[in-house]
Design a protein around this nucleic acid. Structure first.
Lengths: 153, 153
DNA sequence: TATTGTTATACTCTATAACTATA
DNA sequence: TATAGTTATAGAGTATAACAATA
């Protein structure tokens, strides 16, 4: 008997916040990088979208522009990100990771992944496969669903 | 080829924050209840653990005692929760939902579930089944893993 | 006029430290 | 002395409103 969308949603609602709490705790625990989850996500996005604008990042992470401007201020001060004007359109920013930013991003991701992996190690290989598959099912639904809307335009 | 724990962790790390963002946004959007995710989780816990102490809730949600004390203050002011002394041990609190608390909890859960369900509706029944199953696999790993440690003592 | 980003300001959430009351 | 909870205080993260610069 397949679960209804509502039943599936109930389970997601019960479990995902706890998973997220573990992720957040791990980010905090790893003092070396000491990034918030949002900061970490911004770095990940920039590592994949070299030269993205502020709006691009804000849009992807789901923060308002002022919040993102603030966050990037912090990352620039920490010398993890550079912010330059885009000559072609001087309203826009071009954001890039510095070498240190790239290193921190990789270190933070490795640390968080290790901690999560340690927990997931309690699962059988087949259960891990199921979890991994579920993530790929959820990815298009929740990660950058804006792309879908944009294509519609 | 089954994914390694590390690979599984990577996918969780990539997808779960986005799912969580959707949950959080939905909580905020539903102005009627206007609860933070933590407040919502506290109400859910209390709806299932009538008379729990402050420490019980803090432990389950993963907040410090002062933070939880604060949060409960807010919920008491909003008349969603009652806080009484426990005569048997007067250091302890007994927390309960009021009728309004119970109603808000149900309404908030229904709203969040509906919004999530709406998104999950884009999936096939079989994909939903896989997601639901994955949640049940993850539940013992991340939801109340403290119980495992306690049992060990 | 519309778009991109910044500044000013305030609120929520959470933490740590120090304290009170009870056991 | 140890435990349960509160108060005081501070910091991080985010939002909205108002603004400046550019297109």
């Amino acid at each position: 008997m397949p679960p209804s969308p509502r039943d599936c949603a109930r389970r997601v609602l019960e479990v995902v916040p706890s998973v997220m709490r573990a992720v957040r705790a791990e980010m905090r625990r790893h003092r070396a990088s000491d990034l918030s989850v949002s900061q970490f996500r911004a770095l990940v996005f920039l590592s994949r979208h070299e030269g993205a604008s502020l709006s691009d990042v804000a849009d992807h992470i789901g923060l308002t522009l002022p919040s993102m401007s603030n966050m990037i201020d912090g990352l620039v001060e920490r010398r993890l990100v550079t912010r330059k004007d885009l000559p072609a359109d001087r309203r826009r920013n071009t954001l890039s990771l510095t070498r240190a930013g790239r290193e921190i991003e990789e270190a933070a991701r490795a640390a968080a992944q290790s901690a999560l992996a340690h927990r997931l190690n309690a699962l059988s290989a087949s259960d891990r496969a199921k979890v991994a598959q579920a993530m790929e099912i959820l990815r298009p639904v929740f990660v950058e669903p804006r792309n879908v809307e944009r294509k519609r335009i």
